[in-house]
Design a protein around this nucleic acid. Structure first.
Length: 601
RNA sequence: GGGGGUGUGGUGUAGCGGCCUAACAUAUUGCCCUGUCAAGGCAAAGACCGCGGGUUCGAAUCCCGUCAUCCCCGCCA
């Protein structure tokens, strides 16, 4: 080994020890006859001091060294002289007296700072990802990811789970995301699809009797990207036999709590996790993945508003459209001008999601003053008091009124909550607000295609007590689906599966899948299910999102070593790239250039 | 497919019609310096302002297009 210790472990008790350290020059402070080098490795930073008089050879190398040079330092540990300790550094009480220094490798001047937490242009970071990953922040993210994966593996192993790999080269699946196609060399004109998820395989493993399976599965979806979505991402995929919904919720909840508490310093807001039905989530937060770190709930005041003198509310309520209010605590404690600007901005915001307007009332701090805002005059004093009581508003609060089609109100509530929370600084990244959302509708109506479609996937079991309504009133049937949400993100989702062929065929019929067609696409699954399927269910975590939340990062690229840009490019290796004519010929592919702009070769 | 933001020495920013022959910090190079820790001091070098076109007497600055990237909507069972 070129090192006897890491750069993060030496302490006063090592005083006098002869050590060898190796790492990168984090920073160098050259005082002429005395040079200080902060030597960095994955574990930390240790100060090396080199004296020209006592060690001229070492001093020469230290003098020529620059940031990111790779050095090996031999010397003795000593307590720093009185008054020169650095409390910022874990190793700040000691230093290593550099006696011999070996230049293991020099470095070009890096394109950006490794030793500073400056915000760097994303493009530059991606081009030099290997340097970006050298930054302490990224290293701690990647190590955290490792710890999470390790914890999950150990935890599930202890619970009797078996880690099993499934193919990545799969076949096109019905429904679902757009897939990446891989041409087959042997089978002319045929393609594999990269697996969107191991869904079918994990259910087949239940048929195979493994009972408890998990895997960290790479999944591929050729859809447009977001900060929380990459074309390839990792799921913690898990499936279990002989369970009911509650068993899965308990298992995952226990795992997540233990994991967060043992590998992160994040605080769990709910323990046990909060549970919301899909309807509650939508009605109160306008979202099926609400951020529960803050309130700003929507309250349904349709009953009061319907009796107000405001014509729009009257007619909306008569048509069954809700009137909802969000109370912004202290929101009225600003000047009239500012209030009008703020509410104007919020109105623009809700218009962007289809709302026709935003009503508001600013409740005066002083009882004697009038309520400000455009709709106050349509409410009687008693009606105002009733609204205040229902939403729990206090003097000085701002009330925001929304009324529209349900879907529009939901979208508006969601965007208002997110925006207000951001403005009011209510999104503390050190808090994790995990909650279960359950009782999703099994199917939803697709306007365009004029048919029912599964809201999760077509193997999701209906709630058994809702089964009688499957054909007569499909929209009212709840699925045995569960989503784990956290801080406004969907962190995991899964369901209890259908294990009876008859039921599966009823579902297929409901969503308008021709049985013959369905058999072609996943006949293997239907057939397998005739050989003794245990009742089973599973869940899949968005591992990248969970790590992101645990690391307090704003997007998943920060916890993925080599991520892609929004257009799916890898700027470091320049992927994707053109294939050679020979490669294309082998897989029987001809490129048809775009009419307007033929690609460069 | 649509909407929005950004693009200026290596890096991070300023400049937003003429004071720009482009400023500041830091990094880089050289010299000085034995207790620094974002070390300090002195000096030097470094950008035709993403790319293409236009408007103008004059464009980093305004307009159009284009490319890259980020955020959002659609999309993502």
């Amino acid at each position: 080994m070129l090192k006897t210790h890491t750069c993060g472990e030496l302490r006063p008790e090592h005083h006098g020890a002869a050590v060898k350290l190796a790492g990168w020059v984090h920073r160098r402070r050259d005082q002429g006859g005395l040079i200080f080098i902060d030597l960095r490795d994955r574990w930390g930073i240790t100060q090396v001091v080199i004296n020209q008089e006592t060690h001229p050879d070492a001093h020469k190398i230290a003098s020529d060294a620059r940031n990111e040079y790779v050095l090996q330092v031999s010397g003795n540990v000593r307590n720093r002289p009185e008054g020169t300790a650095n409390p910022e550094l874990e190793t700040g009480d000691i230093e290593v007296v550099g006696q011999e220094i070996v230049l293991l490798n020099p470095s070009l001047t890096p394109p950006f700072y490794i030793n500073k937490e400056d915000r760097i242009e994303e493009v530059r970071r991606m081009e030099y990802r290997y340097l970006d990953l050298r930054r302490p922040r990224m290293q701690s993210n990647i190590v955290l990811r490792h710890r999470i994966v390790k914890f999950v593996r150990d935890y599930l192993d202890a619970k009797g789970f078996v880690e099993i790999e499934t193919p990545i080269l799969f076949k096109t699946t019905p429904e679902g995301a757009r897939e990446f196609l891989v041409p087959s060399r042997y089978h002319v004109g045929k393609f594999y699809a990269l697996a969107q998820s191991p869904q079918q395989f994990k259910q087949l493993l239940m048929v195979s009797g493994y009972e408890r399976y998990f895997q960290f599965a790479r999944c591929f979806r050729d859809e447009d990207l977001r900060g929380e979505r990459q074309p390839e991402f990792t799921q913690l995929d898990l499936e279990m036999s002989f369970i009911e919904r509650e068993d899965m919720l308990q298992l995952i909840e226990g795992l997540v709590i233990a994991m967060v508490e043992s590998v992160t310093d994040r605080k769990l807001l709910f323990k046990p996790f909060k549970r919301l039905t899909f309807t509650e989530a939508m009605e109160t937060y306008g979202s099926d993945k609400p951020d529960l770190r803050y309130g700003l709930e929507a309250h349904d005041i349709s009953e009061i508003a319907g009796k107000s003198a405001f014509a729009a509310f009257q007619s909306n309520v008569a048509e069954g459209k809700p009137v909802k209010v969000i109370c912004v605590p202290g929101g009225a404690k600003v000047s009239g001008t500012l209030l009008r600007k703020q509410t104007g901005d919020l109105e623009t915001l809700v218009r962007s999601v289809g709302a026709k307007g935003l009503g508001w009332m600013a409740l005066p701090e002083n009882e004697a003053e009038e309520v400000k805002g455009p709709i106050g005059k349509y409410f009687t004093v008693d009606q105002k008091l009733a609204v205040m009581e229902q939403v729990g508003a206090k003097p000085g609060d701002l009330l925001l009124f929304l009324s529209d089609k349900r879907a529009v109100v939901y979208a508006a509530v969601d965007i208002l909550r997110r925006t207000l929370a951001e403005q009011m600084n209510l999104t503390d990244p050190t808090i994790l607000a995990f909650a279960w959302v359950i009782d999703f509708p099994l199917v939803e109506w697709n306007e365009e295609q004029n048919r029912w479609q599964p809201s999760h996937h077509l193997f999701t079991a209906p709630m058994w007590e809702d089964l009688p309504r499957l054909e007569s009133d499909p929209g009212s049937v709840r699925g045995q689906q569960y989503d784990l949400v956290c801080n406004g993100y969907e962190a995991a989702g899964g369901s209890i599966r259908i294990h009876k062929t008859e039921l599966q065929e009823r579902i297929l019929k409901l969503i308008g899948q021709n049985l013959e067609h369905a058999r072609k696409l996943f006949g293997h699954l239907l057939e397998a299910f005739q050989y003794g399927v245990p009742p089973h269910g599973g869940i899949a975590w968005g591992l990248d999102r969970i790590v992101m939340l645990c690391a307090g990062e704003p997007n998943i690229r920060e916890v993925i070593p080599f991520p892609k840009t929004q257009t799916g490019a890898d700027l470091m290796v320049s992927a994707p790239s053109f294939a050679t004519p020979q490669q294309l010929e082998e897989v029987h592919i001809a490129i048809v250039p775009d009419e307007d702009e033929p690609p460069e070769s």
